[in-house]
């Protein structure tokens, strides 16, 4: 349904001015190749600055790539970017165009601008607001809502005027669990009833594992892996994640602990290690007995998550992904 080939976009270098250093040219997407099937919930996962939003802006016709092709439902989006608006609905990260409208008018206007007549737009608006539980706050301006509610209202606008492809850029940012559930059940209903395809941008690992059919992991503009979440996790199935939380500092005077330091990812008092199961057992035995134990505050052993996959694949940002 959506095929991306060799998509490349480079932001030009910015020359430094007095007091402001220049930035070198940045390849935001680098020879990206993707295939998204109909009815799929496809995710783009990566840390901030990995090129997710740049990629999505090229898929939605908002930005012209330097080279490469994007084909959605048989339409060439690079040559005809204006067609993207008639195939997909896009939920961007910004709501400034809708901020001063009421929830109800934002949804209705968006429906009208998606080509619905006044009656259809009102009917769809009411249906979507009821579905997402927004009816009680329909008369309030988006500006006066909390971040999560505002996001949900923007999501509602994206659903009015049905499209076969939904492109959602971090749709659940700031939402409480009830709102998140409303989003995912609305997405799932559309997929089951109409075969809607969803392209989801996220940097939330837990969300990626639970809702996505397939995920492409992006790092510095390149797709470094593309598979189902469980398929990706199998790549590091032989490893266990060990997290050690020290009371004040790591007891480097213990030789076993000092030997681990090179392999540990340190963040404050926390050490994160990816180890083979056998090694992990030894490490746990070491730190839970003897001198090291006195310095240990807490420890956890866990099976790998998508974050471990990202790190194992050589992702550049060591702490870029959110676990929440």
């Amino acid at each position: 349904m959506c095929a991306v080939r060799g998509l490349t976009k480079t932001y030009p270098a910015v020359r430094g001015r007095r007091g402001a250093p220049g930035t070198p040219a940045l390849r935001a997407t680098d020879d990206v190749r993707l295939d998204i099937a109909q009815g799929e919930i496809f995710g783009l996962l990566g840390p901030n600055g990995a090129g997710k939003t740049t990629l999505v802006r090229q898929l939605t016709g908002l930005m012209r790539p330097d080279s490469g092709s994007v084909e959605i439902l048989g339409h060439d989006i690079v040559c005809h970017p204006e067609r993207a608006a008639r195939i997909l609905a896009y939920l961007g990260q910004e709501s400034s165009a809708l901020d001063e409208l009421t929830v109800s008018l934002a949804a209705e206007t968006t429906g009208r601008l998606r080509g619905l007549d006044a009656r259809r737009a009102r009917a769809e608006r009411d249906a979507v607001l009821d579905e997402l539980g927004l009816a009680p706050i329909a008369g309030r301006p988006l500006k006066k809502l909390s971040g999560g509610q505002r996001r949900l209202a923007c999501f509602a606008s994206a659903l009015v005027g049905e499209r076969p492809l939904l492109v959602l850029d971090e749709p659940t940012t700031g939402m409480d669990p009830v709102a998140r559930r409303a989003v995912w059940s609305a997405v799932d209903r559309r997929r089951a009833e109409r075969g809607t395809t969803v392209l989801l941008v996220t940097h939330n690992v837990i969300e990626a594992e639970t809702v996505l059919d397939r995920v492409a992991v992006l790092d510095r503009g390149r797709v470094i892996a593309c598979d189902t979440p469980s398929g990706l996790k199998e790549r590091v199935a032989g490893e266990v994640r060990v997290e050690l939380l020290w009371r004040e500092r790591a007891p480097l005077e213990v030789p076993e602990v000092a030997a681990l330091q090179d392999r540990a990812l340190e963040s404050g008092r926390r050490w994160t290690l990816r180890l083979a199961p056998e090694e992990a057992r030894t490490v746990v035995a070491t730190v839970t007995g003897g001198a090291a134990f006195a310095a240990l505050d807490d420890f956890t052993l866990a099976t790998p998550s998508l974050e471990d996959v990202y790190l194992a694949l050589g992702g550049a940002a060591q702490k870029g992904l959110v676990k929440a």
Binding site: R57, G61, L62, A84, A85, G92, Q93, A97, L98, L113
Partner: peptide, 11 residues
């Protein structure tokens, strides 16, 4: 602020 994206992705 990128608010024009909203209109630009509507037909």
């Amino acid at each position: 602020s990128g608010g024009l994206d909203h209109y630009a992705t509507l037909p």
